[in-house]
Design a protein around this nucleic acid. Sequence first.
DNA 1: GCACTTTATGTTTTT
DNA 2: CATAAAGTGC
Length: 684
Amino acid sequence: MPSAPTANRGSAHGTAHGATLNEAQREAIRYLDGPCMVIAGAGSGKTRVITHKIAHLVNAGMRGSAIAAITFTNKAATEMAERLASLVRLPEGERPLVSTFHSLGVQILRRDCKRLGLKPSFSILDADDALAILQQAIATTDRKLLRAAQTRISLWKNAMLGPDEAAAAARDADEHRVARAFRDYAATLAAYQAVDFDDLIGLPVKLLESEPEVAQAWRERLRYLLVDEYQDTNACQYQLLRLLAGPRNAFTAVGDDDQSIYGWRGATLENLARLQSDYPSLRVIKLEQNYRSSVTILRAANQLICGNPRLHEKRLWSELGIGDPIAVLACDDEESEADSFVMRLQAHKFERRTRFADYAVLYRGNHQARAFEQALRREKIPYLLSGGQSFFERAEIRDLMAYLRLLANDDDDPAFIRAVTTPRRGVGNTTLEALGSYCGQRQVSMFAALFELGFETRVAPRQLEALRSFGDFINRIARRAAREPAGQVLDALIAAIQYREHLFDTLEDKAAAVRWTNVGDFVDWLKKRAQDEGSTLAQLAQSVSLLSQLERKDADADAVRLSTIHAAKGLEFAHVFIVGCEEGLLPHRGGEPEGEDDAGESLRIEEERRLMYVAVTRAQRSLTLSWCRKRKRARDLLARQPSRFIAEMQLDANPGAKRTIGAGAARERLGRLRDLLAPDRGKG
DNA sequence: GCACTTTATGTTTTT
DNA sequence: CATAAAGTGC
């Protein structure tokens, strides 16, 4: 087996792949007599339990295609499908459905959305498009209010409250205002035949609740459900699970209350308790043996998390030995934090003969990556940035996506606006405003309005001509898309709009070249996908918005990983650096302290503590924590304190567990190593 | 009326 | 430091 650098694939140390299953794992796999919940501590082999349970079901005679494994991220789904494929060989049509909640939602919706008054070619809006629509609805330019409104509405949706219930639940004037905007927002989405991310769960719930035959059909199709990262489900996802499970209650939920880090997205630990009260016969099985980390690391993790009240008390243990002490680095500022990381990395790598891919830098916020990127680039160390801006959020990709969405769905006004203005074709704000107001009166989409006789008088002839020829163009491409292969039409589209020329006209050559390369990657990816799945351009447009990262082959590259802690969940690395361990960052200080009560405050700290716990438990062999005495924020330099979590891990009380090292020591050591390696290269 | 250039502004985490 | 609203040539 080639050892891949990413998680769960076991770099020699740690993972339980080849080993036999332990008693608790076997029990979790074999138990089929009723609903089952597996409390799987960090590194206890939960993916293994899920894949082996699926294999067990298949061996027991269940059709593979009747089993569904549901994850939260595409990465987890891909990983799961691969591990499963290496365990049981199943023919194409007999493979279990391994999918995220959101893609499952799309599948359910695509089949029967007509019953909800939604056309099958509905558009899926990303957060930015949704935000633009909300901005219209709430009529504000205050970005803070806008963002707050978006999360508020999302939380309402995840709690399964519609605009009416939201208005009833609103506690102050601001929330009432947001509830009113929620109503307009929902109406606008309906007019556009568009849905947002939350609707991908909420609408299937609505559908299965209101159409018993549809629910029945899905229950017959999916006879056993396995849910990964159950602690991250929100009320709406829980309801979807209940509806899919039906009265048969044939499911296994796998989760860990200590790793619940998506409370801000509506995930609620109550779902763990609810599972027990809603299913009294629920069998609860705990996995406490850790196959990943050294005893030192686990002891620190246990020490940290015991500060939280927990639903399921558990104590992780491991047989992997004491391992290296945990180091704490106090740095001057973020540059010196990044510098000392790079120097320690180089020294460590030289001494231990490790690979770059054995190292990961984990941080609270994406902006923290910048200093580390710079330092790594300067030293010519390969790195992989996970999280951060998604490939599909890049402007050039969104431009092309707008065309695809418009081809699929004429009513998608946001896509229309983006496509008609990119590249520029003589249609600007005034024209779009006139078009928008006409559409408002006539209750038609922008695309449909172009060809209406009544619209002709609303804009200047020149603009009308530009709009209509754009409309004709889209119609022509759409006609071709129905007949010809997706890839061919895509090439024709990009050539016809002269996108390459547009990039080089509007940007510096270097930037344009980068974007054009991205376009090429995107097109290749679409073509491959269209071929593999036999999907049309329209269907592709739907699946694309659910992806966060282009699955690239260079995931196997030997490179240092830079990642947010959130994005690192489920992964493991031999040597982990948790950076920015400062009060205010980790734990992060929330928005304004206005009106937040003590209970809310301590809940927030508990989630931050779980986040730190997730970070610590990513490490197999060594763990280094660092913090900065000063950190730039906006324009000024702020004095900072080390995170309370460092103290909570009681590294001092843990003999030999802590080494505090000044940032200068590594610099000197690296200097010596460099001299040793290449004396003439010596530099300051 | 369109398209490009300047100036204020504001930072968690993600499907 | 990067994005989005307001300002200036064409």
